[in-house]
Amino acid sequence: MKNFDNGYLQIILTRKGGAVSMSWQGKSDDSNPSVSLNPYLEQLVNELKGDELFIEYNTLKYMNSSTVMPIMQFMKNLEAGGIKTMITYDSGSDWQRATFSALQALSCIMNNITVKAI
Protein backbone atom coordinates (compact mmCIF):
# COMPACT_ATOMS: atom_id res chain seq x y z
CA MET A 1 0.00 0.00 0.00
CA LYS A 2 1.39 3.35 -1.05
CA ASN A 3 0.85 6.81 0.38
CA PHE A 4 -0.49 9.60 -1.86
CA ASP A 5 1.25 12.94 -2.32
CA ASN A 6 0.57 15.51 -5.06
CA GLY A 7 2.52 18.28 -3.35
CA TYR A 8 -0.52 19.73 -1.58
CA LEU A 9 -2.55 16.76 -0.43
CA GLN A 10 -0.99 13.84 1.41
CA ILE A 11 -2.75 10.61 2.29
CA ILE A 12 -0.74 8.65 4.84
CA LEU A 13 -1.44 4.97 5.46
CA THR A 14 -0.45 3.08 8.60
CA ARG A 15 -1.10 -0.62 9.12
CA LYS A 16 -1.46 -2.26 12.53
CA GLY A 17 -2.42 -5.92 12.19
CA GLY A 18 -5.74 -6.14 10.36
CA ALA A 19 -6.49 -2.44 10.77
CA VAL A 20 -5.35 0.33 8.45
CA SER A 21 -5.38 4.02 9.35
CA MET A 22 -5.64 6.56 6.55
CA SER A 23 -4.90 10.19 7.38
CA TRP A 24 -5.76 12.97 4.88
CA GLN A 25 -3.46 15.96 5.37
CA GLY A 26 -2.88 19.29 3.66
CA LYS A 27 -5.15 20.77 0.99
CA SER A 28 -7.15 19.28 -1.86
CA ASP A 29 -7.90 21.96 -4.44
CA ASP A 30 -7.18 20.44 -7.84
CA SER A 31 -9.57 21.39 -10.63
CA ASN A 32 -10.48 17.73 -11.07
CA PRO A 33 -9.17 15.72 -8.12
CA SER A 34 -10.98 12.59 -9.34
CA VAL A 35 -8.31 12.18 -12.03
CA SER A 36 -5.55 11.48 -9.54
CA LEU A 37 -7.53 10.28 -6.52
CA ASN A 38 -9.90 7.75 -8.14
CA PRO A 39 -7.20 5.40 -9.54
CA TYR A 40 -5.25 5.57 -6.28
CA LEU A 41 -8.31 4.93 -4.09
CA GLU A 42 -9.65 2.16 -6.39
CA GLN A 43 -6.33 0.32 -6.16
CA LEU A 44 -6.42 0.76 -2.40
CA VAL A 45 -9.87 -0.82 -2.09
CA ASN A 46 -8.50 -3.95 -3.77
CA GLU A 47 -5.60 -4.06 -1.32
CA LEU A 48 -7.80 -3.50 1.73
CA LYS A 49 -9.98 -6.61 1.31
CA GLY A 50 -10.34 -8.27 4.73
CA ASP A 51 -8.97 -5.27 6.61
CA GLU A 52 -10.70 -2.71 8.78
CA LEU A 53 -10.19 0.91 7.71
CA PHE A 54 -10.07 4.07 9.82
CA ILE A 55 -10.14 7.28 7.77
CA GLU A 56 -9.17 10.53 9.53
CA TYR A 57 -10.09 13.82 7.88
CA ASN A 58 -9.37 15.80 11.07
CA THR A 59 -6.01 17.02 9.81
CA LEU A 60 -7.25 18.05 6.36
CA LYS A 61 -6.94 21.85 6.20
CA TYR A 62 -9.04 22.58 3.14
CA MET A 63 -10.82 20.84 0.31
CA ASN A 64 -12.85 22.18 -2.59
CA SER A 65 -16.27 20.87 -3.52
CA SER A 66 -14.74 18.88 -6.41
CA THR A 67 -13.04 16.66 -3.83
CA VAL A 68 -16.41 15.45 -2.52
CA MET A 69 -16.98 13.31 -5.64
CA PRO A 70 -13.87 11.09 -5.28
CA ILE A 71 -14.56 10.76 -1.54
CA MET A 72 -18.10 9.57 -2.26
CA GLN A 73 -16.84 7.21 -4.97
CA PHE A 74 -14.37 5.82 -2.43
CA MET A 75 -17.15 5.33 0.13
CA LYS A 76 -19.24 3.51 -2.49
CA ASN A 77 -16.34 1.24 -3.42
CA LEU A 78 -15.56 0.47 0.24
CA GLU A 79 -19.22 -0.36 0.84
CA ALA A 80 -19.37 -2.59 -2.25
CA GLY A 81 -16.10 -4.26 -1.22
CA GLY A 82 -17.48 -5.07 2.24
CA ILE A 83 -14.66 -3.18 3.97
CA LYS A 84 -15.63 -2.09 7.47
CA THR A 85 -14.76 1.60 7.58
CA MET A 86 -14.88 4.29 10.26
CA ILE A 87 -14.59 7.88 8.98
CA THR A 88 -13.87 10.63 11.51
CA TYR A 89 -13.85 14.41 11.14
CA ASP A 90 -13.27 17.46 13.35
CA SER A 91 -16.56 18.64 14.84
CA GLY A 92 -14.82 21.85 15.95
CA SER A 93 -14.26 22.91 12.36
CA ASP A 94 -17.31 24.49 10.71
CA TRP A 95 -16.37 23.44 7.21
CA GLN A 96 -15.60 19.86 8.22
CA ARG A 97 -18.82 19.60 10.21
CA ALA A 98 -20.88 20.92 7.28
CA THR A 99 -19.30 18.65 4.69
CA PHE A 100 -18.93 15.45 6.66
CA SER A 101 -22.19 15.61 8.61
CA ALA A 102 -23.90 15.64 5.21
CA LEU A 103 -21.89 12.57 4.18
CA GLN A 104 -22.79 11.10 7.58
CA ALA A 105 -26.48 11.46 6.68
CA LEU A 106 -25.90 9.62 3.40
CA SER A 107 -23.91 6.84 5.07
CA CYS A 108 -27.00 5.76 7.04
CA ILE A 109 -28.01 3.53 4.12
CA MET A 110 -24.57 1.87 4.07
CA ASN A 111 -23.83 -1.29 6.04
CA ASN A 112 -20.05 -1.01 6.21
CA ILE A 113 -19.42 2.73 6.47
CA THR A 114 -19.73 4.76 9.67
CA VAL A 115 -19.07 8.52 9.76
CA LYS A 116 -18.44 10.08 13.16
CA ALA A 117 -17.53 13.51 14.54
CA ILE A 118 -14.76 13.66 17.13
Partner: peptide, 22 residues
Protein backbone atom coordinates in the same frame (compact mmCIF):
# COMPACT_ATOMS: atom_id res chain seq x y z
CA UNK B 1 -27.68 16.39 1.06
CA UNK B 2 -30.07 15.71 -1.82
CA UNK B 3 -27.42 17.01 -4.24
CA UNK B 4 -24.87 14.66 -2.66
CA UNK B 5 -27.33 11.78 -2.96
CA UNK B 6 -27.74 12.47 -6.69
CA UNK B 7 -23.97 12.62 -7.08
CA UNK B 8 -23.61 9.38 -5.13
CA UNK B 9 -26.04 7.67 -7.51
CA UNK B 10 -24.31 9.14 -10.55
CA UNK B 11 -20.62 9.49 -9.79
CA UNK B 12 -19.95 10.34 -13.45
CA UNK B 13 -21.91 13.60 -13.06
CA UNK B 14 -19.67 16.14 -14.76
CA UNK B 15 -21.14 19.46 -13.65
CA UNK B 16 -22.36 18.99 -10.11
CA UNK B 17 -22.05 22.71 -9.22
CA UNK B 18 -21.88 21.51 -5.63
CA UNK B 19 -19.86 24.61 -4.82
CA UNK B 20 -22.96 26.80 -5.18
CA UNK B 21 -24.78 24.65 -2.64
CA UNK B 22 -21.76 24.71 -0.36
Amino acid sequence: IERLRLMMENTKMVKSQLGLYR
